[in-house]
Amino acid sequence: MFKYISKRLLMMIPVLIGVAFIIFTIMDFTPGDPARLILGEYAAQEDIDALREEMGLNENFFVRFGTYVKGAVTGDFGKSYRNNLPVSNEVGSRLPTTLKLTFLGMTLAVFIGIPIGVLSAVKQYTIIDNVTLIAALLLTSIPGFWLGLMMILFFSLRLDLLPATGIDSMKHFIMPSITLAAGTMATLIRMTRSTMLEVIRQDYIRTAKAKGGNEKRIIFIHALRNALLPVITLVGVNFGILLGGAVVIEAVFAIPGLGTLMIGAVRAKDTPVLIATVTCIALIGGLITLIVDILYIFIDPRIKSQYVKGSR
């Protein structure tokens, strides 16, 4: 078990370096000189040359990347081109907000999506099922940011119930997290429904029913536990999608998170901030996938037995 987790953690390192490398390479195509960007349009050529030397911009690509990784390991992601502050401070101060938003969104999606999916499967071909399916289809097709705009229009501008921007209280997170959750919720509803339908038809469920087991108990204890396995994988995968989606949602609600930081960095050509935010998002995504995979071991006894007995 411990071996498995540490192996997975070690496997994340090359992926993260790869992520940094890809982003580093992409950003290397950016036209323009960072030194000129920092010093401004009218700086003297000597100053620019001196700064280039100081920043190590004259080194070749691989040396620069090596230096960057070496710094990044110790938590030094360089300084922002825009305000000369350490990037790690800025990323660190904004990360909690994005994490909070993403986790709230995922919690909503899981705790609303899965029960609705179960209900829809149990009541297959009824009105409940049909309405759920159509609602889920609509939710997957609605852009999150537009849903956000519509909610602002209705709940903030018309009814004046909820604040449209800011992060001061939990109330501020209601609309953003619902907006963020919508798409994933729809995916979870559909996935839970289809896996539940598959499991319900299995022999062991029929046996349980034939033995006169309580209907609810059969659904929740026997069926749901087995149906949830693929759904849990999907939850892990969707965390990454939610983190990506948060970028746009943060822009809609003017939330000072990683997303708005990233958009600002793109506009200002602030490469260090951009690389750090992207790598940070990949790191969180990777960690969450890992946590989900570990959870999987506890839920699926077949996999658990593989690792606990130390056969691998």
Binding site: G244, V247, A282
Partner: peptide
């Protein structure tokens, strides 16, 4: 493995990074 690295970054964010550069 190379594809895994790309898949570790949400597609929207890769797109943003490329747009930032180009």
């Amino acid at each position: 493995r190379i594809m895994d690295v790309f898949l570790a970054i949400p597609a929207t964010i890769i797109a943003i990074a490329i747009v930032a550069s180009l």
